[in-house]
Design a protein around this nucleic acid. Structure first.
Length: 778
DNA sequence: TGATGCTGCGTTTTT
DNA sequence: CGCAGCATCA
């Protein structure tokens, strides 16, 4: 298909550069280059040889990426089918496709290799399935399936699932796959660490099991193509020659398997362009290696590096705060964002008594923004951990502020959706044991665990799938009569449905399957409050199937695309984690909960030490750089975590914000109802130095040091090796009846002691449960 | 096979 | 504290 550049209709972004020279160039240069700044232009035009584009937050990365592709195509350097363009998420892939479509028109359709790592992995694996011991029609397991399969293996080895949870094994295996390790390559010590030395065997068994059920898990979608490349040079060569140009988005998020994969492929034409930002690498905990981006030049000798540092998103203060913070990291390539924007409001830092008040204050702020007619959609609250969201939801419900939570439980993960999909999977491929097992007795049809176990044994003995063996066993004695009857009925239905597969629309078939199987009826009969919602979800599922040509196409989509478009049409405040905010931007951003232990998360620190701290700091950087206009960072002195009151110090990240871009709001002191004053253990209580915005004066720092040495030290450590010191093993010297004093609640009398957890009847605040380390004898 | 109580646990999340 | 997952019992 010819490339039609006349279709180009995208409005240029903020130009600013519009001098004579660039206008003169625009006259001769292709139209898509106009409006790019010099670095962006360089990144677009440098198409031969390895290139790393370090694209800071808000520097027009996507635009560069898409323009670059358009450039390669319009210069006829490659056909659309010769370009490999990989992203991490479906959303990013979709967006890229759309935007390239705007630039080059219908030619995008020829870009068969634009997609997520996993989608491209499946494509390669389907083409060479037999080299991985699979058949081309293999099914893709979601992690629920994966877990069930592992549980079976653990049971087969009679391993105590309490001591060695399947979840843990799944994580280990995923980790190995992320690192490109097949069972034979896992370091002996690591493999040995699970279940007294059985870890390696279990991984090998699991892989073997996957092959027999003709299935691949998500890790395999990367690992198996990699192994094929490594073991079959002819196949590798084929792909190396095919991909004249390679483009990788979010390179800082690649794991070792993906990295190896890219490196092998790039050895063909060596035209690999990786775009990313080392400062925004926040997925180390799921296998991403920042190191991949840090050592790009070593991996690709002669590589060119272009930095995009001009930010089109945020005010100078927001950028200044972000830059000052991230500069504390050691492991980074280094890059400083700048902007031409006029100075506006400084970043606000605000302390609160407790989490409740923090939420109230933010909701008040939002109400006043609302009065100024600011769209709620432009407002976001970004938290470190999802449990923090509840305080805001509670508050917003009371205040009547509409909100949406982004990133909650996902559509395709709901039980009813999984069940429905399992039925459809069995219709499409009866040998999908995991799907069949899921629905064999859902709705209940009198086939108990015992019968299922017998059928599994039968399948193993006959070396067939569960479906086939169950079908045979339904005709023989051995199973309870009731089970046999309903099995036969079930198989009749499946045969009938399969017969209709090619004759009626797949949406209609899905309805028939759900009705005739009794699945819909099951939920209709269910009187629990959520049953109605589940039925709605099923309707929605069938509706969304209509967007696909056939059942197979739909099932493939579902396996790879677990996300779903969020209804964004209503005007609502956005609540989400900082992780899920990556890539988004909002005019008004609130970052609550900046307290030691919570953010940076104690667990990251304990598990990963300095690297963990740096990743947390990058997360803070991501959070800050989401803001366009105004940013408010806050912390609470006291927070209820797991039902216990804990006091916390302001996050070290707050101290790291450069003073000149920050305004410190006076501490809010109106603690709801109790009227307790300040107790002087924190600099923020005094509100003096802090209130004047000079919180890093020597005096202030002394106060902080004192506090750390004094009050905080008197409180025994809240955490030891990542565990909250709140176990019953810890003994308290306090006894019932003792009068105590607590920073937040004042004076009270102990009514109950349990380990180091005290129940105290406070004179003003009523009965509360607190850790003994937060009270003193009064 | 369903209901109920108990224990244990408690970042971040995509594919 | 609140929830999920399991074990136990009827």
């Amino acid at each position: 298909m010819p490339i039609d550049l006349n279709d180009f209709d995208e409005a240029p972004p903020p130009p600013k550069q519009g001098g004579l020279a660039s206008r003169a160039m625009a006259a001769t240069a292709p139209p898509y280059l106009s409006g790019l700044n010099p670095e962006q232009r360089d990144a677009v035009l440098t198409i031969d040889g390895p290139l790393l584009v370090l694209a800071g937050a808000g520097t027009g990365k996507t635009r560069v990426l898409t323009t670059r592709l358009a450039h390669v195509l319009s210069q006829r350097k490659a056909w659309p089918s010769q370009i490999l363009a990989v992203t991490f998420t479906n959303k990013a892939a979709r967006e890229m496709k759309e935007r390239i479509g705007h630039l080059i028109g219908g030619a995008v359709e020829g870009m068969a290799w634009l997609g997520t790592f996993h989608a491209i992995g499946v494509r390669i694996l389907r083409a060479h399935a037999e080299l991985a011991g699979l058949k081309s029609g293999f099914s893709i397991l979601d992690d629920d399936d994966q877990l069930r399969l592992l549980k079976q293996l653990l049971q087969a080895e009679s391993i105590d699932e309490k001591r060695w949870p399947a979840r843990h094994l799944a994580n280990l295996i995923d980790g190995w796959k992320n690192r490109g390790l097949t069972p034979d390559k896992v370091p002996a010590g690591e493999a040995f660490s699970f279940a007294n030395g059985l870890g390696g065997k279990l991984y090998a068994d699991y892989q073997a099991r996957l092959k027999t059920v003709n299935a691949a898990d998500f890790g395999d979608l990367l690992l198996e193509p990699l192994r094929i490349f490594q073991e079959h040079p002819d196949v590798l060569k084929d792909y190396q020659q095919r991909f004249k140009y390679m483009l990788v988005d979010e390179y800082q998020d690649t794991n070792t398997a993906q990295y190896l994969w890219l490196k092998l492929l790039a050895q063909g034409h060596r035209n690999i362009c990786c775009v990313g930002d080392d400062d925004q690498s926040i997925y180390g905990w799921r296998g991403a290696e920042v190191d991949n981006i840090l050592r790009f030049e070593k991996d690709f000798p002669g590589a060119k590096i272009i930095r995009l540092e001009r930010n089109y998103r945020s005010t100078p203060q927001i950028l200044g705060a972000a830059s000052g913070l991230i500069a504390k990291n050691e492991a980074r390539l280094g890059k400083t964002l700048h902007t031409d924007k006029e100075a506006e409001n400084p970043v606000i830092v605000r302390g609160h008594w407790d989490g409740e008040e923090e939420a109230r204050q933010i909701s008040d702020d939002i109400e006043s923004l609302q009065r100024k007619k600011l769209p709620l959609n432009d407002i976001a609250i970004l938290v470190r951990a999802s449990f923090q969201m509840r305080a805001f939801e509670d508050r917003f419900i009371r205040a009547g502020i509409p909100y949406r939570v982004i990133g909650g439980p996902r559509f395709y993960e709901r039980a009813e959706i999984r069940d429905a999909l399992a039925y459809l999977k069995v219709v499409a491929s009866p040998d999908n044991d995991l799907a069949f097992e899921r629905i064999i007795n859902t709705p209940k049809r009198g086939i108990g665990d015992g019968s299922v176990k017998k059928m599994f044994d039968g399948a193993r003995a006959r070396r067939t799938s569960l479906y086939a063996s169950a079908e045979a066993m339904s005709l023989e004695p051995g199973l309870p009569a009731k089970a046999r009857t309903s099995l036969r009925q079930l198989f009749d239905s499946f045969t009938r449905w399969r017969g209709q597969l090619d004759h009626i629309p797949h949406t209609e078939l899905a309805e028939i399957v759900l009705d005739e199987s009794g699945y819909t009826a099951m939920w209709q009969a269910d009187k629990s409050p959520e049953a109605e919602g589940r039925l709605d979800n099923l309707k929605e599922l069938i509706r969304s199937m209509g967007e696909f040509e056939n059942l197979t196409g739909f099932l493939e989509h579902v396996a790879l695309v677990m996300d779903r478009d969020q209804g964004n049409e209503e005007d609502r405040v956005n609540i989400m984690t900082m992780h899920s905010a990556k890539g988004l931007e909002f005019a008004q951003v609130f970052l609550p909960g900046w307290e030691e232990g919570l953010f940076p998360s104690q667990r990251s620190l304990d598990e990963k030490g300095r690297a963990g701290l740096e990743e947390e700091r990058r997360l803070a950087y991501v959070g800050i750089t989401r803001a366009k206009q105004n940013l408010t960072i806050s912390f609470a002195q006291n927070r209820q975590v797991h039902g216990l009151w804990q006091s916390a110090l302001p996050s070290r990240f707050i101290d790291e914000l450069p003073e000149k871009h920050v305004d410190v709001a006076p501490m809010t002191t109106s603690y709801g109802g109790h009227g307790l004053g300040s107790f002087g253990s924190s600099r923020f209580d005094e509100g003096k130095a802090f209130g004047q915005g000079s919180y890093s004066t020597p005096g202030w720092q002394r106060a902080q040091a004192n506090r750390a040495a004094g009050t905080a030290a008197r409180h025994t450590p809240k955490f030891i090796e990542g565990e909250l010191v709140a176990s019953s093993a810890a003994r308290s010297d306090y006894e019932t009846g003792t009068r105590v004093f607590h920073q937040k609640f004042g004076y009270g009398t102990i009514t109950h002691v349990e380990g180091n957890k005290l129940t105290v009847d406070f004179e003003k605040a009523g009965e509360k449960r607190v850790l003994d380390s937060f009270v003193e004898r009064g």
